[in-house]
Design a protein around this nucleic acid. Structure first.
Length: 476
RNA sequence: GCUCCCAUCGUCUAGCGGUCCAGGACGGGGCCCUCUCAAGGCUCAAACACGGGUUCGAUUCCCGUUGGGAGCACCA
């Protein structure tokens, strides 16, 4: 069997977006699945747009998603001698030639061709001129013969290819001596011994020319796998500028990496009817054979469903760790600080799991516990903190006062509620619980009332019941 | 415009000639449960783009139409 060695090659011109993240995931999954290796290469030859911050963001995003690599990160900006050398070699072997056509001339001929309704391909004017290094300002082009069959068996799209005449002699080295993307990629993939190139279909049209480059360099091309694009609601390829889809953003919005990873790996890939894939299962089951060919949308609702799933099912310590920064933010702590871990807080988080889609929501639902001062939802107060509820709250407060701290737990609290319920003429639980809930959490929604009081603690419960009673009495 | 690619419920998809009056998941509707919010249980609606072939038989194979997309740089 052929060795597996893949690569992910992002250009650091912004954040890691979900399209790139998914490509990374596919490369990672394929490499891991086949016990191969993954190389990370930063394509930062566009000095104008590439930044160090962006590179850091990309690496951070990958790490967060659980994509680990075995080699790199390499930076193309540090490898230019390699590319220059390759261009020289091509020139020396006659597989490439110097072209002295100016941009203006090229543009004029191109426009004329297009006006004539034909596709512009370099017309080969300098092809046989055998220009030497002293020909003045010039570019270097790869010689691609008209009848050359540039074909490959795509791991996703099957047999693909073009004739040389459809490709033409493209520039591989600019007049300033720098090298173009195609050459850099081919040289790198060769030098890094990449065996499978897994990338977006938007690169598929580049492949014939790159194959021509491999041949010109007397090298065997790797296998290619072009994966369908992730598109937006309009069905158009995602763009960093237009579509707000950075991995970083999802992280800040309270999504778990497990959920985002599961979400992305399932766009364009499936394994029967299975929907939930752990990191281990992806490594076990992923394959290019079950990657589809049509582009897909990333459905936010699906991400939310997955996030809910993982919030419920990840081990408690992991959930607590993931939730900490969100709790800190909600509680108004500075960076680094955080709410003290306590058995009550952990219990509350476990109660909140089933009711939270995102960590942000979870933290918001924990506000009444995190802060000493609660904010009372006015609508809830109007409905439940009414004069009619006053006697109930008073009786409950008195009864709860006689429950000791050591007895402050679900069972004894339930007992108190049951007693009061009977005494008040068999009122329904709703009539009893809602005023208490609003009094104690400020909101009409919370975990079960016994659990809520138990987690809050005796002192704070009594204090808040007192405030609510005051509030009703003073008619606010 | 040219070259190439794609086409199953709203979305992601299963299906690799009969097992399909097309299955799952998310989303949506309804019912149940219920101290609130959720969760959960049950349930309903929802698709093979169209037209030709091939075949005893097409969602599955071929061609065309339509629709969508990608690429056409001295960008990556």
């Amino acid at each position: 069997m052929q060795d597996v060695r893949t690569r992910f090659a992002p250009s650091p011109t912004g954040f890691l977006h979900i399209g790139g993240a998914r490509t990374a995931l596919f490369n990672w999954a394929y490499a891991r699945r086949h016990a191969g290796s993954l190389v990370l290469r930063i394509e930062d030859t566009d000095r104008e747009r590439s930044t160090a911050e962006s590179e850091a963001a990309v690496l951070e995003g990958l790490a967060w998603l659980g994509v680990d690599w075995d080699d790199g990160p390499y930076r193309q900006s540090e490898r230019s001698e390699l590319y220059a050398e390759a261009a020289d070699r091509l020139l020396a072997s006659g597989r490439a030639y110097r072209c002295a056509c100016t941009r203006e001339e090229l543009e004029a001929r191109k426009q004329a061709t297009i006006a004539a309704g034909r596709k512009w391909i370099y017309d080969g004017r300098c092809r046989d001129r055998e220009l030497g290094p002293d020909c003045g300002e010039h570019t270097v082009r790869l010689r691609v013969d008209d009848d050359e069959q540039l074909e490959w068996d795509d791991l996703v799209f099957g047999p693909s290819g073009q004739q040389g005449r459809e490709v033409g002699d493209k520039i591989i080295r600019r007049s300033d001596g720098s090298v173009l993307y195609h050459l850099a990629v081919v040289v790198d993939d060769l030098e890094m011994s990449i065996r499978q190139v897994i990338r977006g279909v938007d690169h598929l049209p580049n492949t014939p020319f790159q194959i021509a480059l491999y041949r010109a360099l007397d090298a065997e091309p790797p296998r290619f796998a072009h994966v369908p694009l992730i598109v937006n609601e309009k069905g158009v390829k995602l763009s960093k500028r237009r579509d707000p889809v950075s991995v970083q953003q999802f992280r800040e919005d309270g999504f778990l990496p497990e959920a985002v990873r599961n979400w992305l790996i399932r766009i364009g890939w499936s394994h029967g009817d299975q929907e939930i894939f752990s990191r281990e299962e992806i490594v076990q089951l992923f394959d290019l054979e079950s990657v589809g060919r049509s582009s897909g949308q990333a459905d936010p609702a699906k991400l939310e469903a997955l996030n809910r799933h993982y919030i419920v099912s990840i081990p408690a310590p992991e959930l607590h760790r993931a939730a900490r920064p969100f709790l800190a933010r909600e509680a108004g702590y500075g960076d680094g600080d955080g709410p003290t871990a306590s058995p009550e807080l952990e219990r509350l988080l476990d109660l909140l799991r089933e009711r939270s889609v995102r960590l942000t929501e979870m933290a918001a639902r924990a506000r009444w516990f995190l802060l000493d001062e609660i904010t009372v939802d006015e609508k809830a107060a109007r409905k439940h903190l009414t004069p009619a509820a006053l006697p109930i709250l008073e009786v409950l407060r008195d009864r709860l006062e006689s429950v000791s701290v050591s007895n402050w737990e679900d069972a004894s609290l339930e007992e108190v509620f049951e007693t009061v319920k009977t005494e008040q003429g068999d009122v329904s639980m709703g009539v009893l619980a809602q005023p208490v809930r609003v009094a104690v959490t400020g909101s009409a929604a919370s975990p079960g009332i016994y659990e809520t009081l138990a987690v809050l603690g005796r002192e704070r419960t009594l204090e808040r019941l007192g405030s609510a009673i005051e509030r009703i009495r003073s008619g606010r």
